[in-house]
Amino acid sequence: MTREEVFDKLNEIFREYFDDEEITLSDETTADDIEDWDSLEHINLIVAVEKAFGMKFTMGEVTTMKNVGAMADLILERI
């Protein structure tokens, strides 16, 4: 999977998760950019991503992930 493909898939997951067709992710997207992405939703979102890609983040990665770009990099490392 290329980085672009990962991004496409992430975009799809995010749109479905937040019920918002207008979401377009970039490397720099963070929780601040998406209204409903707060600390309470974070874990569920992570789990949704894990399920979709069939991989797992470690707890450390969950808490230190800075933005969507970092998330994509981790996914690329795993699959």
Partner: peptide, 16 residues
């Protein structure tokens, strides 16, 4: 508490 208690807890199998 969020990073070291809440997140690990929410990721556990029973919560999922």
């Amino acid at each position: 508490f969020k990073d070291y208690v809440l997140y690990p807890l929410l990721k556990t199998a029973p919560f999922q």
